[in-house]
Amino acid sequence: MSKESSYGRKNLLISIVFAALIFFLSIKLDPYNQGQLAVALMMFIGILSIVLLTGASGQISLGQGALMAVGGFAAALSILNLGFSIWFAIIAAVLAALVAGLLLGIAAARLSGPYLAGTTLVIALAIPSLATRFDSVFAGDVGLNIDFGNPPGWLTSLMGEVGYEQWQLLATLPFAALALFFTANILSSRTGRSWRALRDHEIAASLAGVKISETKIFVFVISSGFAGLAGVLYGLRGIVGPSVYPISLSLMLLTGAVLGGIRSIIGALIGAILVVFLPDLIEWLMGFLSPSEQVANYLPAMISSLLLILTVVLNPGGIAAGLHHKKRRH
């Protein structure tokens, strides 16, 4: 017990330091990069959902984008139809995603490996298509407009002028820090150990008293909550619609998770920053070579896919595993 509460204090400290670092970084950045960093934090929350699901418990999902869509739509509908403030809408979104995760988990607990991957891939395509099917509710391809609104008065009186991109970043930051704290606590607790036991050896885990099906469903529920949170924040950038949560979003989250290190929280942060800023970096580098338009369009996808293959084949633990490895040698 005392050991776990000391972990909790350490995790709280790390989360506060994380929030402070991003906060000071946000002041130094220009509006474009503030917006990009906000997206990176949203991806960080989304990738944490994969760290919990795939990294910790060994279940794969190619449908995290669909759960993000559930969060986004729940928030948009509660803001536009019920007049919720964005903070209550975020809570509604997470609750909706938890319910969706429960349903998904009940179906998914029976599946593993390629079966689970294929099923979640179909889900990633089917859920957003519901938005066009019932377009009187979900506004179809046009999408529903929601946004972060204006920064509150106390913030502007405290910090002076706060631009819209900076407000996006500052509104996202507490949720990212909360997600970090929550994930770190789960992974270092008894719950996290039972998830890892499930991943490493199902039979041994069940002999040690881990309830297999219940635990798998529980992992899906928690992971979906994270995805829903990422989804509502992503939608609050301006629009919620099927084109905002395409299948490529799910694959981008998975790519980020694997590149950074699928079993590591730091890896999730590295991966999120990579997938968001890599296209900018490539574009900047391309500026010196002035390639044709088609090369410029497809090069980011090419490079991130190549990195994904190389990581899986050469260094499956991702960048974070490389960091830990070096640390251990000292």
């Binding site: 795939t54 060994g58 279940q59 794969i60 190619l62 593993s112 490996g113 390629p114 991957a117 499930l198 991943r199 490493d200 050896h201 199902e202 694959l251 998975l254 790519t255 694997v258 896919s305 190549l306 994904l308 293959i309 899986v312 084949v313 499956p316």
Partner: peptide, 15 residues
């Protein structure tokens, strides 16, 4: 673990 052995080739094929 068997779970990861069946999962990782899926990720590679997506790459």
């Amino acid at each position: 673990s068997p779970a990861m052995r069946s999962t990782v080739p899926v990720i590679a094929s997506l790459g």
